[in-house]
């Protein structure tokens, strides 16, 4: 996977060198060439650096480690390693049904920064609460989870389309696809993170790429 971070770092370093040049030798801007250099150094390069930085940080905010960097999310991070296949988040994470480095974002794609403007405003409010307010004891979604997020991957999959439970009643599959019957309904995939069950859960030790645990 191509990573643009080294290029961005190089752009920022070059920007800093050029800015320092103008700052410590402003007299070079007397000539036409110096004026052009000043414009490139004090406008073009900072714009490129800032734009690249925004892009890089937006990509990073999709990463699991970013989401779990707030201690409020510690239990949610722990829930990914529960050794119980009925825990939906754990089953998806441990079996690579979602990319592990973007596990949170893959399912919560319309959350905070990646949703509409209301979601973005909520994200800012979360930041405010995290640092200046009181984090609620129980964290819940603002609205019921939309089946659209599940169907993004599962629609068309044989296990979903032909699953016995999904076809147990005549219109059940259509109701699921229309978001009239939640995937997280009681009796179905109701345990997602299972935060209230973590104290009794066993945990899986992830096998790393080098084979160690």
């Amino acid at each position: 996977m191509v990573t643009w971070t080294p290029l961005l770092v190089a752009t920022i370093v070059i920007s800093m060198v050029l800015v320092a040049l103008i700052m410590f030798r402003p007299a070079i801007t007397i000539g036409k060439g110096g004026k052009i250099l000043a414009f490139v150094s004090l406008f073009i390069f900072p714009v490129l650096s800032g734009g690249g930085g925004i892009s890089e940080h937006m990509e990073r905010s999709k990463r699991t480690e970013f989401c779990l960097s707030c201690h409020t999310m510690a239990d949610h991070g722990k829930s990914l390693r529960v050794d119980d296949p009925s825990f939906l988040a754990a089953a998806h994470y441990q079996n690579n049904r979602v990319p592990r480095d973007q596990a949170c974002f893959t399912c919560h794609t319309d959350y905070t920064m990646f949703g509409n403007y209301k979601a973005k405003l909520r994200g800012l409010r979360h930041v405010y609460v995290q640092y200046l307010g009181k984090v609620p004891d129980k964290i819940e979604l603002y609205s019921p989870y939309n089946n659209r997020e599940c169907l993004h991957c599962h629609q068309g999959a044989r296990s979903f389309e032909e699953g016995a439970t999904h076809n147990a009643e005549p219109r059940r599959l259509q109701q699921i696809k229309a978001n009239n019957l939640s995937c997280n309904s009681a009796g179905c995939h109701e345990t997602v993170h299972g935060i209230d069950k973590l104290s009794e859960a066993k945990f899986w030790n992830e096998v790393k790429e080098d084979g160690s645990k």
């Binding site: 800093m16 800015v19 700052m23 900072p46």
Partner: peptide, 12 residues
């Protein structure tokens, strides 16, 4: 600009 770019570099 130097200060801002420095902050950006650190945050990366």
């Amino acid at each position: 600009l130097l200060a801002g770019l420095g902050v950006e570099l650190v945050t990366l």
